[in-house]
Design a protein around this nucleic acid. Sequence first.
DNA 1: TCAAATACTCAAAGCGCTTTGGATTGCGGT
DNA 2: ACCGCAATCCAAAGCGCTTTGAGTATTTGA
Lengths: 343, 343
Amino acid sequence: MNLKELSQNLGLSQTTVSRALNGYPEVSAATRQRVEQAARQHNYRPSTRAKGLATGQALAIGHVIPMSTKHEMVNPVFGDFIAGAGETYSRHGYEMILSIVDDANEEQIYRGLKSRRAVDGVIVHGPRMNDPRIALLHELGMPFAVHGRATGSDIPYAWLDVNNRSAFHRATDFLCDLGHRRIALINGLEVMDFAHRRRAGYAASLAAHDTPLDPAIMRSDEMTEVFGYASARDMLMLDDPPTAVLCSSLISALGVRRAIEERGLVMGRDVSVITHDDALSYLQNGGDIPIFTATRSSVRDAGRRLAEILLHAIAHPDAAPQNVLLEAELMVGRSTGPAPRKD
Amino acid sequence: MNLKELSQNLGLSQTTVSRALNGYPEVSAATRQRVEQAARQHNYRPSTRAKGLATGQALAIGHVIPMSTKHEMVNPVFGDFIAGAGETYSRHGYEMILSIVDDANEEQIYRGLKSRRAVDGVIVHGPRMNDPRIALLHELGMPFAVHGRATGSDIPYAWLDVNNRSAFHRATDFLCDLGHRRIALINGLEVMDFAHRRRAGYAASLAAHDTPLDPAIMRSDEMTEVFGYASARDMLMLDDPPTAVLCSSLISALGVRRAIEERGLVMGRDVSVITHDDALSYLQNGGDIPIFTATRSSVRDAGRRLAEILLHAIAHPDAAPQNVLLEAELMVGRSTGPAPRKD
DNA sequence: TCAAATACTCAAAGCGCTTTGGATTGCGGT
DNA sequence: ACCGCAATCCAAAGCGCTTTGAGTATTTGA
């Protein structure tokens, strides 16, 4: 069923039917009613492609998901993020189109989306330090919004980020206040902007507590369970092992806990752990009382909001780019306690 | 840059340029070379929408991701699955379009995709028992392929599934051979087809070992860490606690381990655990030696292959639907051991 | 009563591509 | 010199929609 058939069916012109369906005022209430009724009955929906061709809009947003070539790994955060973004899109009649791409081909993907006019805008995932994508998208004139920020970019652009620096600063303060001074950092890859900022917050807090940084208890890599486990295991075998661990992901924190318990220690008593928690739907941090003390910020909510920001930017091309900085909550759970006294 | 401009630029007709670019034989090698060169130089790519309108194809595949309304939860498996499917699509020049939708609206979404002609086919995720979607899609004449199977459907359709029944049968056999008889089952929601089949395999094996089913040590729900933890904790407090646990997801298994250790028991000695492992990139089951003994099957690979199946079905509408049944490997890790002797 | 204003409705152009059906050119064969 | 056949190339129609610019009833005010 297409517009032509529908309008013949109704004995009206295509124009009138189109207008009736799109809420234009030039059509009488009675006619509109009739048209809408018929459309519903025949299950008519305008062809996205034809509509897009005629209007010049794609009514679609691209999500280009970078994939770590090293581990063939898609960020686990991503499922919840797009679930949030998807809510926003469907409310606004947009589709979401997804490309999963390894780092090498990213530029080609963006250029392709642009020249094929496949999307009205894109979400940039996983920004890195000095991320070249933002200059590229700016140059292409493609509306975009960044989940996170890209330190080192001077062009203004739309973004939504968690205040990673302050979150890790506060978390470190919290541990210091409990008497900890040997605090390990198990971080994401430091080319990733968020990891860089978290480290900065951690470092600033330690500095404020007159505690030197010790590379022996600082690691960064892709945040798997195994990475958390191996890092914590190694660190606990040091002569001067950490009494607390600050961890960038709940998944790695699970590995940290495994290493602690494997060594016969008790988390929250012998070793304190704080982790960042993205509030993933399938990986909740315990029930009523959190298992892990955590800096928490819902990535799904971030998806919802960043999508709004992008749609706003598309609808108002001349408006200044919106920026949102979310503060993570520090939720105290059972994984932290006073630093054990030295014997 | 559009086709018209490009062809004027070259002093050729749109037809010739289009043909040159699409590999038709009616154009000389020299001309083709020239055209391709110019296209590359001007970064020309045909507009997806216009091409789609002209050809009647969408060159896009829809993924409709059901979201559990109860937990607002997106299946964690999904990220890896679409990473796999995405590889196949980009190799074939298709896009992936995603809708995240709660169970209530599913039918509308499929009807919408159809009438808007937005996709050439869809992947059905998370099939349930007697899933109504497969009859619906069949009726709509929309090509589709199912990740899993839907027991109770008599229409033939394309699917790819893990042999869940045999996997859990073998896993249960394995435990029985180690002397276990109190074997708990921590399963996914049993409306989900895969959970139903896993349970059937488990039950068949127990029956073959003359062991009765005991509902007190069988649970099913959404497979979160917390669910695994709470289930195992409760079961371990029974008068006659299980000596082994069969678990449907690595994430829940992490919760099971937590419950075991919290009780001061050792996994693999006091309580054996086998879990299904989807080989998610960010949740690997340990390094060289798996932490958990597991029935393993890569969901990413499933994505790759199911996408191929769907594209094949689209290209050959009259071919019989393809079906693939993958056998999971049983990988022995450190979470299983002989049943402890009764005192 | 008539002209002007209002309320509807329509035919046709255009969005950027593919594809049909023809036109043109070059070349060997006679 | 002419014909026939490839090898090239092209103009125009059509995909399903929106939107422009205009047309036709129907009221309204004087």
